[in-house]
């Protein structure tokens, strides 16, 4: 059984400060028209966790789930 990972964004907590977008080494994230973060290129993510640890709003989490 493998482990699947994904980036979970809490849009309610996100204040659109752009920190995660700017410091992502693979340009995975972007702000949408409402100024909230969205995962634009999930396949490029290398799971470094930089966005997760630098988010001042604790709005991004790497979620690990067991794949079926």
């Amino acid at each position: 059984m493998s482990v699947e990972r994904r980036l979970d964004v809490n849009r309610h907590w996100c204040k659109g400060c752009r920190i995660c977008v700017a410091f992502c080494p693979r340009n995975v994230l972007a702000l949408d028209r409402e100024g909230k973060v969205v995962v634009m290129r999930p396949d490029d993510c290398i799971w470094c966790g930089d966005c997760e640890i630098r988010c001042p709003d604790l709005a991004i989490t790497i979620v690990k789930e067991a794949a079926s």
């Binding site: 400060c17 752009r18 630098r54 604790l58």
Partner: peptide, 21 residues
């Protein structure tokens, strides 16, 4: 509920790191 700090405030990152510690 979002916290009271302004967008981009560094204090949220301190909270983030502290919880991890």
């Amino acid at each position: 509920m979002p916290h009271i700090w302004c967008p981009g405030c560094g204090h949220g990152i301190v909270l983030n790191s502290l919880l991890r510690a």
